[in-house]
Write a protein that binds this DNA or RNA. Structure first.
Ligand SMILES: Nc1nc2c(ncn2[C@H]2C[C@H](O)[C@@H](COP(=O)(O)OP(=O)(O)OP(=O)(O)O)O2)c(=O)[nH]1
Ligand SMILES: [Mg+2]
Ligand SMILES: [Mg+2]
Ligand SMILES: [Zn+2]
Length: 563
DNA sequence: GCCGTTTTCGGCCCGACTGTTTTCAGTCG
C-alpha cells in the first residue's frame, strides 16, 4: 500500500462525502490528510507497522490515524465501501466536468438517476436537465460541451513544455504601455514538475485593455470566461490560462495569492486572522485600512515571517522553518559547476564527444562526465567492454585538445534484472565515473528492486545511482523502491543519488531528494542526462526540483570543484 | 475531522464569475 494509494482513498472519500452534503470542513480534513500522506517521504505502511504515532502528523487526529491504519491493513475503509456502493464511479466522473460540482452532480443523480457520463449526455440532449432546480438552458449546453471537452482535454503539462509559451505570452502582455508588471504565478512559479494551467498576474489600471490583448494573442484559441478583473482562456496547445489584473499597489498581495499554493494561502490568511488582519489578493487590511500588500515581503512581514521562496509554498514545512528563521538558502542554477550524466553518438546521443564538451563549456560548466549506455540497452546501441574502452580512448583524445573544462570517461551502467552489473568489475574499475541505473524490470517486486539497487550501491566502482525509480511523469510509475534501505546503504557506501533533470523524469523527486540530503546526508547530483547539446539546458529543471526539496548548495555535489 | 497559552467547543481563507435567481448558490481561483 503506497502513500499515493492511501491518499487516493482519502481523496475519493472526500469527493463522496461532498456528494452526501457533508460538512465542508470535514471534507477538507480528508483532503488535508490525503495531502499530508502523499507528501510524506517515508511510507505510511512502514510507519503503521512500526507503531509510529500518526497523530503527530499535521491534520491527522485520532480518527484519521485509525483510518490510515485500516487502509494499510485492509486496503480500504468500510465507510468508503458503503459510499462506493451508493455512488457508482460514473457519478464521480461527472465532477470532472467544468462547472459541475458536488451539489449539482448530487441533484442530477438524485433527481434523474444519472450514473454515467453517457446518461448525462443523453439527458442533456433530451432537454431533461434544464428545469431542474439551479439548472437552465445554458447549464445544459455547457454540460454537453464539457463532456465533449473531457474526451480531448489534455492532462497536466510538463513545466518545460509550458515555459516557452508562458514566457511569450507574458512578454507580449508586458509590452503594453498600460501594464506595470506581468508575472506567471501559480504552480509555474512554484516550479512544480507539471502545471495544470498557467496563471498570469498583471498589474495595470486598464484591465479591459489587458484582457483584450490576451484574447487576441496568437497562442489563444478561445475566451472561456471574462469578468472585470479576471479572464480564463484556452490556448491552442490545450492548456488553459487564468489572467488576473489588479492595481499596482496590490502587486505583492496579488502575486502571493496567485502563486499559492491554495493550502499555503489558507495558512497565510489564518495567520492574518490571528493578528486581527484580513489578507486577500488586494492587500493586507486592518479593518478598512490597508496596511500592506505592495510587495510579497510586506505580506509575509504582516504575519511575522520572512519572505518564503515560491518553490517551498506547499504548506509542508515552510511555515515552521520561516518561524524559526531556518528557511534554507536554496541552491541556484549558477551554483552548478558540473554535469555527470550525458550521452554522445557512441550510443543514443545525437552529438559527438567534441560537441558535447564544447556545449558544456559554452554553458559555463567546469567539468562533465560522458556516460554512454552499457550493452544491455540494445535499443540505444549500448556499449560492451571493448567498445566502451575504445570510446574512452576517443574521449581522452578529444579532451586533450580542449582546455578550460575537465572531462571524465564515464559510463551509465545498467543494473540487470538478475541483480548483477551489465559490465564486469574490471571494466567499471577503469571508469572515471560510474552512474548505475535501472532501465529494465522496473515492475519487479520490491525485494528484487532492492536487491538490484543494493548490488550497485555496494559495488566499489559505482559513484552514483541515476534516476532511481525510473518513473516517467504522467506516463509510467517508477519502481517500488524501498527508500529507507536504499538510502541507508547509499549513505554507508558513499554513493551519491541523482536528481535526473530531464523534465519527464525529475527522479529523485523533491520529497526524496530532501529525505536523502537532510535525513541521510547523501550527496545529491543534479545531472541533465543530455542526449544532445540542447539537452544540457534542462539543468534548470533539476535545480527547480532540488529547490522544491529545500536543498542548499552544500547538499549538491556538482556545485563543488571536481576533486 | 482537526485544533488550541485567548478556546476542549466552535471556529475553520477570501473573493470573482456565471447562471439562475428575485436576492444568491454553486463553482472555481
Ligand atoms: N486563497 C485561495 N487561493 C486559491 C484558492 N484556489 C486557488 N488559489 C490560488 C492559489 C493557486 O496557486 C492559484 C492558482 O490556482 P490554480 O488552480 O491554477 O492552482 P495551481 O496553479 O497552484 O496548480 P495547477 O498546476 O494549476 O493545478 O490561485 C483558494 O481556494 N483560496
Ligand atoms: Mg495554475
Ligand atoms: Mg489557474
Ligand atoms: Zn542516461
Amino acid at each position: 500500500m503506497t502513500n499515493a494509494e492511501v491518499a487516493a482513498c482519502f481523496e475519493e472519500l472526500a469527493d463522496l462525502l461532498e456528494l452526501e452534503g457533508a460538512n465542508p470542513f470535514r471534507v477538507r480534513a480528508y483532503r488535508n490528510a490525503a495531502r499530508t500522506v502523499a507528501g510524506l517521504a517515508e511510507s505510511v505502511e512502514t510507519l503503521v507497522d512500526e507503531g509510529a504515532d500518526l497523530t503527530e502528523l499535521p491534520g491527522i487526529g485520532k480518527d484519521l490515524a485509525e483510518k490510515i491504519a485500516c487502509i494499510v491493513h485492509t486496503g480500504t475503509l468500510p465507510q468508503l465501501e458503503e459510499l462506493r456502493a451508493k455512488y457508482p464511479t460514473g457519478v464521480l466522473d461527472m465532477l470532472k466536468i467544468p462547472g459541475l460540482g458536488p451539489k449539482k452532480v448530487a441533484v442530477l443523480f438524485r433527481e434523474l438517476g444519472i450514473q454515467t457520463l453517457e446518461e448525462l449526455r443523453a439527458a442533456a440532449e433530451a432537454g431533461r436537465i434544464a428545469g431542474l432546480r439551479g439548472f437552465g438552458k445554458k447549464t445544459e449546453q455547457s454540460i454537453l460541451e464539457g463532456i465533449e471537452h473531457l474526451q480531448t482535454a489534455i492532462a497536466r503539462v510538463y513545466l518545460a513544455e509550458a515555459m516557452p509559451v508562458a514566457e511569450a505570452i507574458r512578454e507580449d502582455i508586458a509590452s503594453l504601455d498600460c501594464v506595470d508588471k506581468a508575472e506567471i504565478a501559480g504552480s509555474f512559479r512554484r516550479r512544480k514538475e507539471t502545471v495544470g494551467d498557467l496563471d498570469l498576474l498583471v498589474t495595470s489600471t486598464d484591465s479591459e485593455r489587458v484582457m483584450d490583448r490576451l484574447a487576441e494573442n496568437e497562442f489563444v484559441e478561445k475566451v472561456l470566461q471574462r469578468g472585470e478583473t479576471k479572464q480564463r482562456v484556452r490556448l491552442r496547445m490545450g492548456l488553459e490560462m487564468d489572467l488576473r489584473v489588479v492595481a499596482p499597489e496590490s502587486y505583492g498581495a496579488a502575486l502571493a495569492y496567485f502563486t499559492g499554493s491554495k493550502e499555503h494561502n489558507i495558512v497565510v490568511r489564518r495567520r492574518g486572522q490571528e493578528r486581527g488582519l484580513k489578507i486577500n489578493e488586494y492587500g493586507v487590511f486592518r479593518g478598512e485600512k490597508r496596511v500592506g500588500g505592495k510587495t510579497e515581503e510586506e505580506v509575509y512581514a504582516a504575519i511575522d515571517l520572512p519572505w518564503i521562496p515560491p518553490e517551498l509554498r506547499e504548506a509542508r514545512r515552510e511555515f515552521e522553518w520561516a518561524e524559526q528563521g531556518r528557511l534554507p538558502k536554496l541552491i541556484e542554477l549558477r551554483d552548478i559547476r558540473g554535469d555527470l550524466h550525458m550521452h554522445t553518438t557512441a550510443t543514443d546521443g545525437t552529438a559527438t564527444i567534441e560537441e558535447m564538451i564544447q556545449g558544456a563549456k559554452a554553458r559555463g560548466l567546469r567539468y562533465i562526465a560522458i556516460t554512454d549506455h552499457s550493452k544491455r540497452v540494445t535499443m540505444a546501441n549500448g556499449l560492451d567492454a571493448t567498445r566502451l574502452r575504445k570510446h574512452w580512448k576517443d574521449i581522452d583524445r578529444v579532451r586533450g585538445r580542449i582546455s578550460g573544462i575537465d572531462v571524465l570517461c564515464g559510463v551509465e551502467c545498467d543494473i540487470l534484472e538478475d541483480a548483477t552489473m551489465d559490465l564486469p568489475d574490471d571494466v567499471l574499475a577503469e571508469a572515471e565515473f560510474v552512474v548505475a541505473v535501472l532501465h529494465y524490470g522496473l515492475k519487479l517486486p520490491r525485494e528484487q528492486i532492492t536487491r538490484r539497487l543494493l548490488t550497485a550501491i555496494e559495488n566499489p566502482y559505482v559513484d552514483a545511482i541515476g534516476h532511481l525509480t525510473g518513473r516517467l511523469i504522467g506516463r509510467r510509475p517508477g519502481a517500488d523502491v524501498d527508500y529507507d534501505t536504499i538510502m541507508k546503504a547509499a549513505a554507508d557506501n558513499g554513493v551519491m543519488l541523482e536528481i535526473n533533470a530531464h523534465p519527464s523524469r525529475l527522479d529523485l523527486d523533491d520529497l526524496h531528494a530532501m529525505q536523502a540530503a537532510y535525513d541521510y546526508g547523501i550527496p545529491i547530483l543534479i545531472n541533465t542526462d543530455a542526449h544532445s547539446v540542447g539537452g544540457l539546458d534542462v539543468m534548470q529543471f533539476g535545480v527547480f526540483q532540488a529547490r522544491r526539496g529545500g536543498l542548499e548548495k552544500r547538499h549538491v555535489a556538482n556545485t563543488k570543484p571536481l576533486k
